[in-house]
Design a protein around this nucleic acid. Structure first.
Lengths: 175, 175
DNA sequence: AGATATCTATCTACTACTAGATAGATTGGC
DNA sequence: GCCAATCTATCTAGTAGTAGATAGATATCT
């Protein structure tokens, strides 16, 4: 894999565990085995790293959504598949959605990072809205926001308690 | 007000905006107009401050729950009142639940702080479970966890988008 | 030669935290 | 009432360590 993606992998894991400010160039560099100064070659400012990280996360996520839902027929099945993308990393690595973590710290993040987090949520609401529209829901936009809120909140609480059943219960309650 | 509570007020506001690691003794001290060393007299370690903060938050929250629900009859009304405690600070200060923020960073927090965050969630689930039991819900514990997840998630997303209607929609969907 | 990626070495600013002193208020013994 | 002891809350001055960031040299590959 190329260096930028190796850097982002490490940054992503750490940020999803402990937040933006808990991740340092020094820590990332020492895990790779290079000097922290070298990281600034790839990501001059920490904000650049944060922005790239959320962008990559968002693109990977929606690539997975596309792949895992393309052969499904009903909106219900698609939404379950959508939720199970979040679930896979939660259950075997106890990792919450990157944007759930960054969203919680949003008021203290560099502007560019906060903007990307918002964009991720927007894209999620858009995708979910389309499903609820297809399902014939009365207010698909509100329902989409509610579903996203539930999933993000359930991930966070599941991770804190290291108890995946909370997320499972949340998914079962959707629709 | 006494000094410890003044310190905790400032720490609470900042932590609910930007997270645990974004709050420094220096910043708190300079806002009060004393030296950071003086803060260590009241809270020797940052973990002590974090623990005291979550404990105070939890106690204040459940005092408000008790006060705002004591004269209400139905579990539905009580749960709405419960949600509106979260909502009041969200809508006029854009402040998320302290434990939603700290929960997102839980894996990187001092052990004592994480423990208090868990306790807060436990207490919430307990309280909500009692309401759903009174309501005759089939699985009151799961329902309680789902409701808490929804509220915490909706607060976070509402704050990021500075759009209170997301939280309102979430509250309307409960029960 | 040029581009890519890393290095060394350094900087400034900030982090939590501590030691030891001080001023002022409070408490208890005689 | 007076004195000594203690407590409260702050200060100055400092520790060691970490933060993100930069300049400029070096190595490697095409």
């Amino acid at each position: 894999m190329d260096r930028p993606n190796i850097i982002l992998d490490i940054a992503e894991r750490r940020m999803r565990q402990a937040g933006y400010n808990a991740v340092s160039y020094r820590d990332i560099a020492s895990e790779i085995g290079i000097k922290s100064a070298s990281l600034h070659y790839h990501f001059p400012k920490k904000e650049d790293l944060g922005v790239a990280l959320v962008q990559r996360y968002s693109e990977n996520f929606f690539a997975a959504v596309k792949q895992n839902t393309s052969e499904l027929k009903t909106p219900q099945d698609k939404i379950k598949a959508f939720a199970s993308i979040f679930n896979s990393e939660l259950k075997d690595q106890n990792l919450v959605c990157l944007c759930a973590v960054l969203g919680a710290e949003a008021a203290g993040l560099p502007e560019g990072v906060t903007h990307e987090v918002k964009s991720f949520f927007d894209r999620n609401v858009l995708w979910l809205t389309a499903q609820y529209e297809a399902y014939g829901h009365a207010d698909p936009v509100s329902k989409a926001k509610i579903t996203l809120s539930l999933l993000e909140g359930a991930m966070m609480i599941s991770a804190v308690n290291d108890d995946n059943s909370i997320f499972d219960a949340a998914v079962s309650s959707i629709l």
